[in-house]
Every structure is written in structure tokens, then in C-alpha cells.
Nucleic acid binder design. Structure first.
Lengths: 336, 336
DNA sequence: AACGTTTTCGAAAACAGTTTCGAAAACCAT
DNA sequence: ATGGTTTTCGAAACTGTTTTCGAAAACGTT
């Protein structure tokens, strides 16, 4: 009911000094058992919890780990859930921070990290696609392939392998003219998916045709433009692999606008398996990233790092899985 | 690459005092344009960003709003996404905190709030089912019905109306013996769903039968126990309404174990429409809560509150929507 | 050149609640 | 009583920022 309790209130309630309360709460040596008990009672009665700000100021530890996300889109949200699971058995609390989209757009991850570090948090997980050359006075783990420091511990899904599998599946269905809607060229994940697409073509002895590739930038509007160009051609592809689900959905809409039926006239495969993928009128065939497991793994790595351990593997690659749903089929005999 | 830069580093690099840097960065009056430019260059070069902790100490503002969640389960995660959307156009950053699973389990919301308050955040949204008598030195908005202060601004889904609609739908299908697996009796949301269930029975002139009600506590294990009792009776219900999706899924599993086929032998309706609901082998008929809209509304209310405005409505009730999927059907003629 | 006014800048205080340090007090056994 | 060991306490220290206030510099006017 009253304003938040400070250590002074607890001290007064327990009839001891603030120094004693601090030691009792933190389990330091040198306080009588009965005193500890009395202090803990007062703590419970007042609902006291040490202030993050104050304790971070004095001792450089808070028992909180920070997760930096660009935004709470499906991928980040799922990773976050995984981090929470990975932290459940630890003594760490979790703080997710989404900051400064406004402004320059460049280097926000470094600046957000800077705001939290120093030190509100004892360690951080960066769920950001770019991860420029950040550094901090706390242990760091990155999620997703990125263009930053190579020595930064990282956990990511196997983008290249997943893309290869998706493309190979389309080939196996009988497709030969397979289009690709790429992601943001500045992101490593996008480049890896591009590479996987080419791997599969090469393995099947199919020549790479630049006319079948367009950049969709991972976003709906731009992916639609890309899809319109791709499907508007005379020799249009019989199947398209999209660098993410958002793009795949955009492609399906464009196909429908052009009077093409999915999957009869054109097959579409996505990447991610966002929660919506399976709920679409036409459930999407896509490459599933184990988003929660990525988060959980990152959390485990970070706690090990904070405990001063050396990581056995600093770069963890988690397998993807092709999920076959309703947007893929063999090409029509006529156009095969 | 080096450790994070402080205002002192910037001052040294720009050849001015820390006071000047502070003024330049915050656009205060009394610093020459050329000096400002020099300072800003140093800021950019060093990647400096003011520490949240330090600035919160001096000026009592941080430009950050806090969201307290018990855990990152589906409901909280969806609300969080909504809050992010609601904040997108504001100048506020978002900090989500999940704390103190360890320990008592009681009053953690007050204690987590205590850790952040004082003041790391300029306002808070509590996504917690209990919301005991918290108070803080910052504006507060609660999500979900709760047992706390009645004057706390709140946004919630229409639990009672949703439960009524779900039950009425079962009645409309022809069911007369309709079971109910309740949630945690200590939570208001659960009591409201109970009330809605009874409303619908009463409106249809069906007597309330305590033998058809069991408490499932909103969790899988306990809901299974409840379901076993409910379905193990001689005069078993032909349909069951569950207070949340988790319980509904548990009921379906129990039914299957007992050799009952859903929906032929028994219909099941849930509440929430968690992302999984539609992905089950048998997509679940359920009452959808607009989780993202709840978060977005809470964010809007909070920013208004922080701007010193008076809320036109302190208690917002958002409508639910019955989603008919595959787990409901008319009762079998024999047992009807 | 002298004087008053305005602009610019920096040293130091304040901020707030915690943890830690060193000393005092209490306790116990000999 | 003395010496040693716990336990307790008051006061200092800690963080990085913002702000206040006075001094110095720059400028314009006579």
C-alpha cells in the first residue's frame, strides 16, 4: 500500500542496522541465525526487494540477464520464450529490451547495450540481425548469423542446409524452373539461404538462372514486387523458394492475383515456420527453425560464460526441418 | 571494441568538460553551435549512450516503460507484442521483466515492480493474474481481471461474455449435459468464466449440476485429473467447456484414453485461442481473446497516463470471439 | 580603452539506495 | 579479568549523470 520499501525500512522493522540487513539478505558471513530470521521476516512483511538500480551501482552484479531484440516480431518472441526456459533453473531474472528503432537505425544494438550495461545486467543475448562491433563489460552471446565480430559466441539455425533441403525437395517433386525470392542482402542469414538454394541446384545439375532470382528484403511489400516480376515473366518458374515465410505468403497472394492456383500452377516454400504458417487457408510448406531451442541454447551458453566457464563450442548450428504442408506439389505435366 | 564509453570519455575526446557534453547531448541552452558539433562527433566516434542507471538517478526520467510478466507463456508473449505495437509511435522504449519465479510465488509482482521502480521506468504494465496491492511512484496499468486495487486502470477481455457464448453454442448444438473445467479459483478471470457458463445455462433453462463441474487450475496435469473425474461418471457430459485451452487439450487427451471420440462422443470448447489451438491434429473450437489488442490498448492508456491526461475509461473490456473448429458437433442421437 | 552585457564553460554538488569497511560491542571460555 | 571470536553498527564509498552557479571570455557601446 505504501511506497516501495527500502533497506532502511526493513532495518527499522527488524530493529537492526542497514548493514546487517544487507548481509542477511545476501547470505554474507557474520550474522547470527536469529537475526537473519528476524530480518527475513521483515523482508517478507514489507515485500522488500533490492533495487536493481542501487545494487547495480554498488556491487557490479544484479542477477539479471538482458535480451536485446529489434522488435517483438514472431522470431524474437519465440527466441525469448526459449531463453526464459533456459533460464528457468538458474537464479537469473530476465529483462528484454527493445529500444531506439526511431533515429538512425544504425548501431542501435550497440547503443541499447550501452544503456543497459554498466551495469544493469550481468550478461546479454543479442537477438539482432546485424550485431555490429559491439562490446561490453559483460559476457555476450549472439543469436542468428551476423556480420559482427567472428569471436562472438553465436547460436543459429542452419540456414544454408535448410535452404538446400527446401530446394532439393522442389527438385525431387519434379520442378526444374525454381525461383528464389531473397532476403535483405546485408544480412548473413539471407546470403546463406541464397547459397543453399544454389547448392541444391548445382547438386542436381541444374544451371543457375539469374532471371529466376529477385530480392524481396524479407518484407511483405517488397516481396510482392519481387514476386510480380518473377511470375510476370513469359517463362515463369513452376516453383518458388522464399527466404522467409512473410515473403512466401506475399508470393501466394500475388500468384492468386495473377490467376495462378497454388500448388497446382505454382509451388511455394517458405522459411521460418512462424506460428501463422500452419493457420493459413493453405497451410504453408516451409523450413522450420527451432526458434525456442535457439533461445534456450543461447541462455545455456551465456550462463556458462557468466560462471567463468570456457565454452566447448562457441558457434552452435542447430538443424532445421522441412515441414511439408499444402503449398507444394509436382509441376503440371504440361509445364514440367 | 573497448569498454563502454562514459560521458567523461566523450568530454576528454572533445576537449570540453562533462557538463558541456551533458548539455550538448540533451540540447540544453548555453553551448556554442561549434562546440555542440564537436561533442556530437565525439559521441558518434565513441558510440556513447547515456547509462540508463545513471540518468535515472539524477533526472527522474528514462523514457522507458516496463512490462511485468510472470513468464513468457503464449498469453504474455502476445500481449507483449501488442504493447510493442502500441508504443511504436511513441518515444518510449520497452523493457519486459520476468522475475522471481524462485522463492515464494506470492507477491512477486510487487517485488519485481520494486526492483524496477525508483526509477528505472517511467510507467509500468502488469501482465499478472493476481496484482496484489501494488503501488509505485509511476503510472500503472493492469492487464487481465485481477483481485487488486479497484482503482487500477485495467484492460481485459470479456471473460464472462466469452464463456456465455461458448456455452450457449454448445446448447444450440443440442447439448444438455455440459461439463465445465474451471481455472484457478483465486483468479478473477476464472470466476468470470464460471459465471458466464452459469449465465448460459440459466438463460436456456438448464439447471446447474455441481456434478458436472471440476476445478482444473488452468494447468495440464490438474486439468487431466479433473477431466478423468468428469468423464469417468456414469452419466457423463456430452460436451465440456474448459476455462482455458491448456485444459481443453488435456480433456481431449483424457477422452481419447477413455476410448471416446471427439467430437462424436464428446464436444470440447476451450478459451484463449493460443497459437497452438489451430495446429492440433484436431483444431480446437475455442473463445479467442484479442491478446495483442489488449497489450496495445494498455500501452495507449499508459502513455496517456504518463502524459498527465485523465483516462476517459479506466476499465476497458474487449470483446471475445467464438472460433468454431473441429472439436464440436451435435450430440449423438442416442445420448441426446 | 573602459565598461556593461551576454554568452560559454567548468568545478562541484546532488542523486539514492546499496554494499563494504573498520571499529565497537557483546559474548564466551579460560 | 583477559584474550579471542562473533556479531553488530555507523559512516563512507560507489556509480555516471545532470544541474547549479559562478567565473571567464567574448562582444558591443560609448
Amino acid at each position: 500500500m505504501m511506497a516501495r520499501a527500502t533497506i532502511h525500512d526493513v532495518a527499522a522493522a527488524a530493529g537492526v542496522s542497514v548493514a546487517t540487513v544487507s548481509k542477511a539478505v545476501n547470505g554474507r558471513y557474520g550474522v547470527a541465525p536469529e537475526t537473519t530470521e528476524r530480518v527475513l521476516e521483515a523482508v517478507a512483511a514489507l515485500g522488500y526487494e533490492s533495487s536493481l538500480v542501487a545494487s547495480s551501482m554498488r556491487s557490479r552484479r544484479t542477477g539479471v540477464i538482458g535480451v536485446l531484440v529489434a522488435d517483438f516480431e514472431p522470431f524474437s518472441a519465440e527466441v525469448l520464450k526459449g531463453v526464459a526456459v533456459g533460464l528457468r533453473e538458474s537464479r537469473y531474472d530476465l529483462l528484454a529490451y527493445s529500444g531506439s528503432r526511431h533515429g538512425d537505425g544504425q548501431g542501435w544494438e550497440r547503443r541499447s547495450l550501452s544503456r543497459l550495461s554498466g551495469t544493469l545486467i550481468d550478461g546479454a543475448i543479442m537477438v539482432t540481425p546485424t550485431v555490429v562491433n559491439v562490446s561490453a563489460d559483460v559476457p555476450l552471446v549472439a543469436v542468428d548469423p551476423h556480420t559482427g565480430r567472428a569471436d562472438l559466441p553465436t547460436v543459429e539455425a542452419d540456414s544454408r542446409g535448410g535452404a538446400r533441403e527446401a530446394t532439393a525437395y522442389l527438385i525431387e517433386l519434379g520442378h526444374r524452373r525454381i525461383g528464389f525470392v531473397a532476403g535483405r542482402p546485408d544480412l548473413t542469414s539471407s546470403r546463406l539461404r541464397d547459397a543453399g538454394y544454389r547448392d541444391a541446384l548445382a547438386a542436381a545439375g541444374i544451371g543457375f538462372d539469374p532471371a529466376l532470382v529477385r530480392v524481396g528484403f524479407y518484407e511483405a511489400d517488397t516481396a510482392k514486387d519481387a514476386a510480380r516480376e518473377l511470375l510476370g515473366q513469359r517463362q515463369r518458374p513452376t516453383a518458388v523458394f522464399a527466404a522467409n515465410d512473410l515473403s512466401a505468403i506475399a508470393i501466394i497472394e500475388v500468384a492468386r492475383d495473377l490467376g495462378l492456383e497454388v500448388p497446382r500452377d505454382i509451388s511455394v516454400v517458405g522459411f521460418d515456420d512462424v506460428p501463422e504458417a500452419s493457420r493459413l487457408v493453405l497451410p504453408l510448406t516451409t523450413v522450420r527453425q527451432p526458434m525456442q531451442r535457439i533461445g534456450q541454447t543461447a541462455a545455456t551458453m551465456l550462463t556458462a560464460l557468466m560462471a567463468g566457464e570456457t565454452l566447448s563450442a562457441t558457434h552452435v548450428l542447430l538443424p532445421t526441418k522441412l515441414v511439408r504442408r499444402a503449398t507444394t506439389a509436382p509441376p503440371q505435366p504440361a509445364s514440367a
